[in-house]
Amino acid sequence: MTIHPDRTLPASDRFQLGTDGAIGRRPLPRETIRQVLDSDRRREVVRCALAATDPIAVRTLVGRLADAERDPTVGTTIHRLRQRIHTSLCETHLPLLEKHDIVRYDEMRSLVAPAANCAAFESLLEFDSLERPISARLE
């Protein structure tokens, strides 16, 4: 009989310990990979998750995205931009990434960490420049 101590811990502790849930993991379909890579915000979340050694605060992700997206010529304040980014991350992007086991999103603690399928994106996100079409990277 095999004992899996991480399964006896509460879900909040498993999140913190970094278990990746790789048991029974199946490869992601190409359409899912394209869907994830189709959004600048999702790509950046995956990049951050891959680079992090600890869970990342959603607030940190919002700040990073706001800095990248801010356009001083547009009349939107940084506060309003951060609000829009936070809403889109929490309501759209993070749930989608979590659904496909790419990141783990702890809504109560507002933390994001890589999940079992996150590593599948490492070679696809090596390029800082998005000049190379996504479809070419998937071939």
Rank of each mutant, 00 (worst) to 15 (best):
E122C: 11
L81P: 04
P72W: 03
I3A: 05
D13G: 00
I78L: 12
I85L: 07
R109M: 09
A51C: 00
V45K: 02
M1C: 05
P55I: 02
E131T: 15
P72H: 09
A119S: 14
M108L: 15
D128G: 15
M108R: 15
P29Q: 09
L138C: 11
T87C: 02
V46R: 00
D38P: 00
Q16R: 15
R34S: 07
R82P: 02
R137V: 08
L28V: 04
D6G: 07
S129P: 04
A115W: 13
L37H: 02
E91G: 07
N117G: 14
F15K: 04
A51T: 02
A115V: 07
Q16Y: 04
D67H: 01
T53I: 03
G63W: 00
R26T: 12
C118P: 12
L138W: 10
G24H: 02
E31T: 13
S88D: 09
R26E: 09
S88H: 06
L138E: 03
I102M: 09
P133A: 09
H93T: 08
S39D: 05
A66E: 00
L65F: 01
I102Q: 10
C118Y: 06
A120L: 14
V112C: 09
Q83A: 11
H100S: 07
P29D: 08
R7I: 06
T77I: 03
D71K: 08
E122P: 11
P27Q: 03
T76G: 04
D54C: 01
I85D: 06
A52T: 03
D128H: 13
A113L: 10
L125T: 13
H100G: 05
T77V: 02
R41N: 04
G75D: 12
V112M: 13
Y105G: 11
F15G: 00
R26S: 05
I56S: 01
T92F: 08
P27E: 04
A136P: 00
E44Y: 10
P55K: 03
E98T: 15
L50W: 02
F15E: 03
L17E: 05
C90A: 12
T60F: 03
D106T: 08
E44S: 08
H93D: 15
Q35E: 11
L124K: 13
P72E: 11
V62D: 05
P114T: 13
R64Q: 05
D106W: 08
C90Q: 14
P10I: 07
L125S: 10
R34L: 11
L124C: 11
P55V: 02
A11G: 01
R104Q: 15
L9T: 02
L124N: 12
D54N: 06
A120C: 09
I78K: 09
T77L: 03
R80F: 06
V36N: 01
C90P: 01
L65G: 01
D13C: 02
R26G: 01
C118G: 11
V46C: 03
